[in-house]
């Protein structure tokens, strides 16, 4: 599958790409600093890779941080089995192209009990296939640090998350008892079994992500760009109707719409937006006039008030 934005093979060290503006440069420097610090202080780091735009930026920054060396840790993809097909194809291409170590984990219980977003509801499904699966994968690898692409501007409970976010051996986050974090001096001391989640993109906003993708020519999943696609309306969301496992309910009809996605997750739980944005320029202008937040299209955030905080306490990313 061709990537949307081909990167120059083995980028040219004398490239004439214009330098980043000071704003993006500062964010990039901070993220690289965090990557290097975690890689140096922890024994078994891993990077959570969700294939979305934030993960794409995160991966790009990791490659920059360790250049000319390889990325010194594996990528972990927690697969629910319900990702968009285009995401998986993109992931496989990226792993090959950049010579990365990828670990894929699917919760065996979910597979055995046939847990689906349709049969179990979004809350229970997310709990088993994402939160529980993530805990299993982190335990199996005995990772003491896991990079994630979360940003503080995404959701209210994230605004108080540290850049090094401490987790107990059972992966719990205690928002009331976080370690203070001063300057850019990070406390990476953990006991056996304890870990940190490290968030190099903490201070980035959604617009920063897109502007950086544009400035750095970072490949992303084509679903972010508008195109005529089959959709079906369900629970107030437009969901992609491509996967044969999606059964239409009585009264539902499949139709074609010009749509794109602002965030990517599991296709049955991710709402598309009507959009004509077919380029990064279009996306950025659309975003600068947008009146809804990016997580508006995510069903799992809306289950209950404070639902992201609850999931995070239990070990969700």
């Amino acid at each position: 599958m061709p990537l949307t934005h081909p990167e120059t093979e083995l980028h040219n060290p004398q490239s004439t790409k214009p330098p980043l503006d000071p704003h993006l440069k500062a964010l990039e420097n901070e993220a690289i600093h965090i990557f290097r610090e975690v890689a140096a202080e922890f024994e078994r780091p891993v990077m959570l890779y969700s294939i979305g735009k934030d993960s794409s930026v995160l991966l790009h920054l990791a490659r920059k941080a360790f250049y000319p060396g390889r990325v010194p840790f594996p990528l972990l993809h927690v697969n629910t089995g319900w990702k968009f097909a285009e995401m998986i194809a993109f992931r496989n291409e990226i792993v090959k192209r950049y010579d990365l170590d990828l670990i894929e984990h699917v919760n065996p219980r979910g597979a055995a009990e046939n847990v689906t977003p349709f049969s179990h509801g979004s809350a229970l499904y997310t709990d088993i296939m994402k939160t529980e699966a993530l805990r299993q994968a982190l335990d199996a690898g005995q990772y003491d640090a896991a990079f994630g692409g979360a940003r503080r501007d995404e959701e209210a409970s994230r605004a108080k998350e540290r850049i090094y976010s401490f987790r107990t051996p059972d992966h719990r986050w205690d928002p009331r008892n976080q370690r203070p974090e001063l300057w850019n001096v990070y406390n990476g001391m953990v006991r056996k079994g304890e870990s940190v989640r490290a968030f190099p993109l903490s201070n980035w906003t959604e617009v920063d992500i897109w502007r950086y993708i544009q400035a750095e020519d970072i490949p992303i999943v084509p679903l972010y760009f508008a195109k005529k696609r089959p959709v079906v309306e369900r629970d107030g969301m437009m969901i992609l109707a491509e996967d044969p496992r999606l059964e239409l309910l009585p009264g539902e009809t499949k139709r074609e719409e010009v749509i794109r996605f602002r965030t990517l997750g599991c296709f049955p739980l991710t709402g598309a937006i009507r959009s004509e944005a077919t380029s990064l320029d279009d996306i950025i202008s659309e975003l600068e006039t947008a009146t809804v937040s990016e997580r508006q299209g995510r069903a799992i955030d809306r289950d209950q008030s404070g639902s992201m905080e609850k999931k995070k306490r239990e070990g969700y990313f």
Binding site: P22, V207, E288, T291
Partner: peptide, 11 residues
């Protein structure tokens, strides 16, 4: 909403 593209000449 204002549509002017932000220029970021400082951190």
């Amino acid at each position: 909403a204002e549509t002017a593209r932000a220029t970021r000449d400082s951190r």
